[in-house]
Simulated scan of single mutants.
Amino acid sequence: MRAKEIIKRNWFLCGILGCILAAEVFPSLGKTGGLLKPEWTVKYGAVGIIFLTSGLSLSINDVLAAGSKYRLHLFIQTFTFVCIPIMILIFNLVLNNIMGINEWILKGLATVSCMPPPVSSAVILTKAVGGNEAAAVFNSVIGSFLGIIITPLTLLFFLGSTAIISVLNSVVMLGQTVVIPLLLGLAIRHFRIIRNLKLLPLSTVGQSLLLFIIYTTFCDAFVTHDIPMNATDVLISVVLVVVIQIGLLYISFHISLYLKWYSPGDVVAITFCSTHKSLTLGVPILRILFSGYAHFSQITLPLLIYHPTQIILGGLMVPPFKKWMMQKKSG
């Protein structure tokens, strides 16, 4: 019974481990172009439903209240688009001068630092902890739209290269996958089209869809065999990405806690939203910038590692964050 209780209490973390194992055993099922068609089911299905459930669980007043928290939005967007690129630039200079790390791996880290926040993982993790979901939704949407303009400009500044991104196509995609489902969920809740919304397992649905995203992400990772680099480069990339993410999570959490402007729920939203990076926008940009380069796989690897790592670390943080939130509420 003890083991069952532990698994039940930590089902999301167990689900992450199960998804990684399933992806290794059955990678062809969830890879891009596979039977599950993640290029459609994830992009337009899972992400859309995640924001639909967010709209169903929020009131319009919650969203308006979240929108008025300018200090919270300013912190998240500044940390995402300004602080992280600067910190990674300094980090890369130190690594290059002291350790002589492969310059293309360092360029990959710099590219990751310029990416906007994702539109799903930060929201689901914030909701799983019980943080300020409305603020997470608001900043994920705003950050994605800002990334269409800011990300190419920061890439131009830090790497000396830029990408031609179709702003119209990006806006249409974000509208279809994020804005429309979110507004639909808000409308259903506001006009009470569905009665007894509290009886619906919205949080469980969202976390289950995130597990589906994790599975398909690792399926693509396991079927990719065209990384012409030695084991040392791969190991170094993994270690650097993990160290960077832990450092960013620590910094964003403690700075937001120190400022005293934010509630515990706000701190949770800040920690996840300001440190997560988007694979959806990142991969197309990298393909535009470096496709055909001899070192393309080396510069892409950090972003491919960053995406699942942020979800795994986030999943590990859910139980202690919940405990911390309960202590704050009771204290």
Rank of each mutant, 00 (worst) to 15 (best):
M1C: 08
R2G: 15
K8Q: 13
R9F: 09
N10I: 03
I20V: 14
I20S: 07
A22D: 06
A23C: 07
V25M: 08
P27T: 09
S28F: 12
T32E: 12
P38K: 11
W40M: 12
T41V: 03
K43W: 02
Y44M: 06
G48C: 03
G48A: 14
S57L: 02
I60R: 15
I60Q: 13
L64A: 11
K69L: 12
Y70K: 13
L72V: 07
L72D: 00
H73E: 11
I76P: 01
F81K: 02
M87N: 06
I90L: 15
L93G: 14
V94W: 02
I98T: 12
G100N: 09
P118W: 05
A128C: 08
G130P: 03
G130Q: 05
G131E: 04
V137E: 10
S140T: 11
I142Y: 04
I142P: 09
I142Q: 08
I148W: 06
P152V: 08
T162G: 15
T162L: 01
L168D: 14
N169H: 10
S170G: 06
G175T: 11
G175K: 10
Q176N: 11
T177Y: 03
V178N: 04
I193W: 15
K198Q: 14
K198E: 15
T204E: 09
Q207F: 10
L209T: 01
Y215N: 03
A221Q: 07
V223Q: 04
T224H: 10
I227F: 13
I227Q: 08
P228T: 13
I236E: 13
S252W: 01
S252Y: 00
I255H: 03
L257R: 14
W261C: 11
A269S: 15
F272T: 00
F272E: 05
S274K: 12
S278I: 11
R287A: 12
T300M: 14
T300A: 15
L303R: 02
Y306V: 02
P308W: 01
P308Y: 00
I311H: 00
V318Y: 01
V318N: 02
V318A: 04
K323L: 14
W324Q: 12
W324D: 05
